[in-house]
Design a protein around this nucleic acid. Structure first.
Lengths: 330, 330
DNA sequence: TTGAAAGCGCTAACAT
DNA sequence: ATGTTAGCGCTTTCAA
């Protein structure tokens, strides 16, 4: 691998000069510039970014930590983040935390050891205190990590309101929320979906009902629980699920039980990924603004990295959008 | 950020000694070891991997280049790769090539500039010659990049045979392949699916039929083409698609046309991702051994990186597995 | 068992 | 307009 001094020798100049033309600063004559450029080409020279960063230059590396990459919502968000970061000259170190706090912590150390310029986190383990004490720029998606760390999210409360109101408007009276319920705690921004649900029903003088369904359960067990529920609760006529997957499961089970969706049961999900929308356009859902989220995450991180902007209890919230489709048809 | 010399000062030893305990070599007395460890803890010391790698040490960074991360097949493969690399102490630089040769090339430069220890590629642009001239360990998924670069893939030919035979066995006679067809060229390993299809039908004295469907088309256009095809080709009774997505589209369109699957039309896909299997268990498909592929990719890369093993025209092929389900029921 | 010092490839202050 | 040189934080010979 050719290095700076090789280029310098070949071009008949000093290393400084080569460094200058690479970084394009100071005064250079056209002649030397050209000499250096040709030397660089001939040697197929690539600057070693390790050596560069060692002087305090940015590494242009950003750690991106998410709980899963196979979940289409995260996949689409990560894809957007990667693409936008690339356009800004950054590379992504992908950290798939896998709901594993130990792995996440280990990644955190690796990232600081690698001198990343910043970190984008979207995981949900609350055990990791390190984020607060790190002096690295961090931005978070949908999770409160500390007062200094800005949190970007979509408006889960408003989204849930949209969804619930859609169920009411389509004629449902006996409406259930299906998902992981944390009635009361609301540490997780996502719990706001529950609150928005309850609030909207209250405003419509209806009673909220819940079916707790842990996210960690296997699909088969979820299906079984949903089947159980639907069989024993013939009164239910509207369901708001915590995510599109669960909504799909509900629709599948309903079909197998010959329950007509949307005639006898309205269903609405949450997330609105392109993947699920393209294969199940019949599903009404709340679409999170994935592109905007990615943009805001990166914009905010950029402000922290390049303008050293400080944040204090910043919660940046983007509006959600209702996708009205067949599963909530009147 | 504390550095080696800080630790040395605090522990009352030289930097050499600290370096020795970090890397655990040379002879150290227990006493100094302990002194250094406590100093490290107190300062919350993290070695700077940039400085380390500058001496020629490995960066423990691997570039992972794929055409898409939102496609569940790649998402699941990347997730497996990431997890296994992590267990081996490597970090992943995620490169989403997006079917964009320019971006891919640019990433390639970035990766070499960052001194990655190796690269795993799964993209399909044939324009990039750089792979062959790089002296970096590269392994490829499902794509021939050059004689020195080992190619790992599942057995597309055998998979297609399994799929096609399943259609025949379930009683279909008038069988179509739907997907991007490249009749004859077979540069892409994936084209072997077409060959396996043709071969199997020949063995069963049946004639192969094709519906060319470009992957780049939007879902709506694909659906339209499929609808057209099914409407105008009432004789078709078996369909093998190039991937599960297309199979799902076929089933959706068939349903809307009141064509009974599997009674009047057998359908089988390819890929067998967990995601699609969990939401469409009724789809028969060929499951690629994603975990094994990931393992083999990493194992091979590891041989190249750490044992400097050379490969010449290596094609490592893993068997596929038939998932027999409702869509090909007799 | 420990330390001094050279140097990895680059940048940037300081000279000229 | 160009060059000399001192580091960045670490590893590693070589010497003690």
């Amino acid at each position: 691998m050719a290095k700076l001094s090789d280029v310098a020798k070949k071009a008949g100049v000093s290393v400084t000069t080569v460094s200058r033309v690479i970084n394009n600063y100071g005064s250079l004559s056209e002649k030397t510039k050209n000499a250096v450029f040709t030397a660089m080409h001939e040697l197929n020279y690539q600057p070693n970014s390790l050596a560069r960063s060692l002087q305090g230059k940015q590494t242009k590396l950003v750690g991106v930590i998410f709980p899963s990459i196979t979940n289409p919502f995260y996949a689409e968000l990560i894809a957007d983040i990667e693409d936008k970061l690339f356009k800004n000259g950054y590379k992504v170190i992908l950290c798939n935390a896998n709901e594993n706090a130990e792995k996440e912590l280990s990644y955190l150390r690796m990232l600081t050891a690698n001198q990343v310029d910043g970190i984008i986190v979207g995981t949900h383990s609350n055990e990791i205190k390190e984020y607060q004490t790190m002096d690295l720029p961090v931005v978070s998606f949908d999770r409160t990590l500390g007062t200094k760390i800005p949190t970007i999210s979509s408006d889960n409360f408003q989204g849930a309101q949209l969804a619930t109101q859609e169920l009411v408007d389509s004629g449902a009276n006996n409406i259930y929320f299906i998902g992981k319920t944390h009635l009361g705690s609301a540490k997780n921004p996502t719990d706001l979906r529950e609150k928005g649900f309850a609030k909207t029903l209250e405003q419509n003088s209806l009673k909220p009902h819940y079916l707790d369904l842990d996210n960690d359960l296997s699909n088969n067990i979820k299906k079984m629980k949903i089947r159980d529920f639907l069989t024993n609760t013939p009164t239910v006529d509207g369901i708001f699920t915590s995510d599109d997957f669960t909504a799909l499961l509900v629709m599948e089970v309903a079909q197998s039980l010959k329950i007509d969706v949307p005639k006898n049961l309205k269903v609405i999900g949450f997330d609105g990924t392109q993947l699920i929308q393209s294969f199940h356009p019949e599903l009404s859902t709340i679409a999170q603004p994935i592109q905007d989220i990615a943009e805001l995450l990166i914009g905010t991180l950029d402000e922290r990295i390049n303008q050293h902007k400080e944040f204090e209890n910043a919660k940046l919230v983007l509006p959600n959008r209702l996708i009205k489709s067949n599963s909530t048809q009147k």
